[in-house]
Amino acid sequence: MPSDPPRPTGAELEILTVLWSRGPSTVRDVHEVVSERKAAQYTTVLKQLQVMAEKGIVRRDETQRSHVYAPAKPKEWTRKQLAGDLLQRAFDGSPGGMVLGALSAKKASKRDLAEMRRMIDEYEKGMR
């Protein structure tokens, strides 16, 4: 069993994000997404994915004609790995109140879920 992959660099993180977002992808797919936001050479992306495969950050499926790459570890695992990183690249600090979201960072409790379901049912009944 190979040991855990090393921490991804900033550029590798970007490629990982593409894979988390789109699921297992070919080099062409990844290149297409990356080049939406900046000029990127196909060969650069290819090279990066090869290096990441060697490091064990991504897995390569070679059963297809064009190889398909997938993250070796789930997103949450990498997040945890980077949170402890002294360099803390993308995850440095908490934006706190600086980001505005529809969801609370705290998940609803089971009781809250039941309560919400009850209220929606009650509301629907009232409308009929």
Binding site: F91, G96, G97, A102, A105, K107, A108, D112, L113, I120
Partner: peptide, 28 residues
């Protein structure tokens, strides 16, 4: 309904290290 459903979906999701983000208030 969408908000409530979203909370249900989240409930099923794997446990996460909570990055402390701005609390939008309790969904309920």
């Amino acid at each position: 309904s969408a908000l409530a459903a979203l909370e249900r979906t989240r409930w099923g999701a794997e446990k996460r290290e909570a990055l402390v983000l701005a609390a939008g208030g309790r969904a309920v």
